[in-house]
Design a protein around this nucleic acid. Structure first.
Lengths: 218, 218
DNA sequence: GTCTATACTGTGATAGAC
DNA sequence: GTCTATCACAGTATAGAC
């Protein structure tokens, strides 16, 4: 369904500039730098006013230009959000597919490590979590290119689960629901806190016990 | 922290009209009916275009008036959302605190019933779920009056948990996270489907086993 | 009392001058 | 590449007709 992880990640960043300018580097590099600057300012705005609080006029002011000039770098506001999504998805892939320190001989510890990473990633940035996993922008749907790394990360998780003997789709759906619920509660009800962070290991124990030891388990 | 459930529920609906008109009924009843009509149209719009897709101009058109005339019935768009939130929270309270058919002698069945209700309630209406549990409207925060029934429902759930011997806050946080995750996955990844609905009973078994039988459990 | 008419501010977006 | 000017639309607010 998807190419190599790096291919997926890099494709997203390239997708909005069809071809690099013929005068090879100077202009293109400057342009790419400005794009990054715009995205950084957009993340800052999202952190302060929420994802829906990004306005092109203020965004332009933050990077020292008029709002209309942003259209030289992104074709629309949606494209800015899409680029943010692509950044977040790539970071998610990187954070979530790094090799674990626990070996295959300790599947429970491996799951805990994985769970802590996913939880930590979500708790790290509220707007990033909202953009990637809640999508609260009215008409916004991420492009397939931006979505790629997220799918790749999910497939990687499934493979790791398969490696420790968890094959059932239901068991994996239960896993994703459990992690999703913990992170969602943490981010929305105790942002910056630790209330649900301390439950991650317990939750993994609970799930692991059920999946491995219960006859009726999926 | 809160009054009786009914007090909380009714207060929210009355909060925007300071005093019923002295000419007792006709006018006030007509007005209340129009308010309900407006809210129904707003729910319909939310179902079609998403929560953020409610515009006062189209909302007015749907109930046969200009957008400005809506201000005769609600002081602002926020007030409309707040009234919708109050409705949803009251429905949540009603759906979630009805007596269970399973008796106190079968706590596991009771938990399953409770879980199925919460899940079913969330899956029933996507915009209602989003408004109550995800709150994706930029500047919207529900008023304390509108929030009341939701808090009451949570307290009711805690009491029921206490009645079957679950006292630890951590165990309850794990419960809420589990249910939240299941409903969230269902609503966002398979709306109208059954993919996570079939996991609710499994999830309750998993949680129940862990909380009652595991020494290291919270 | 309820509606219409009008207007103000802010939004994303486009066209064209330089 | 950045600007000015302008557009259509949003939410909001007030004045006045009836």
């Amino acid at each position: 369904m998807l190419g190599t992880p790096n291919a997926a990640r890099n494709h997203a960043e390239r997708s909005e500039r069809p071809a690099p300018p013929t005068a090879t580097d100077r202009q293109g590099r400057r342009r790419e730098e400005t794009r990054r600057e715009i995205l950084a300012a957009a993340w800052a705005m999202a952190g302060e006013h929420g994802l829906g609080g990004i306005s092109l006029r203020e965004l332009g002011a933050r990077v020292g230009m008029k709002a209309q000039s942003l259209y030289s770098y992104f074709p629309s506001k949606q494209a800015i959000l899409d680029a943010m999504f692509a950044q977040g998805a790539a970071e998610f892939y990187a954070a979530t597919t790094a090799p674990t320190v626990a070996g295959p001989d300790d599947p429970r510890a491996r799951c805990k490590e994985q769970a802590r990473r996913m939880f930590g990633f979500s708790a790290e940035s509220t707007p990033r979590y909202q953009l990637l996993f809640q999508r609260p922008i009215p008409g916004f749907e991420p492009s397939p290119e931006a979505f790629g790394p997220a799918v790749a990360a999910y497939e990687s998780m499934r493979e790791q689960m398969g490696a420790i003997g968890v094959e059932s789709q239901q068991a994996i759906d239960l896993w994703t629901a459990l992690l999703d619920g913990l992170t969602d509660q943490q981010v929305t009800n105790d942002p910056g806190g630790e209330r649900w962070a301390g439950l991650v290991d317990h939750a993994v124990d609970m799930w692991f016990d059920y999946v491995t030891k219960t006859a009726s388990a999926p």
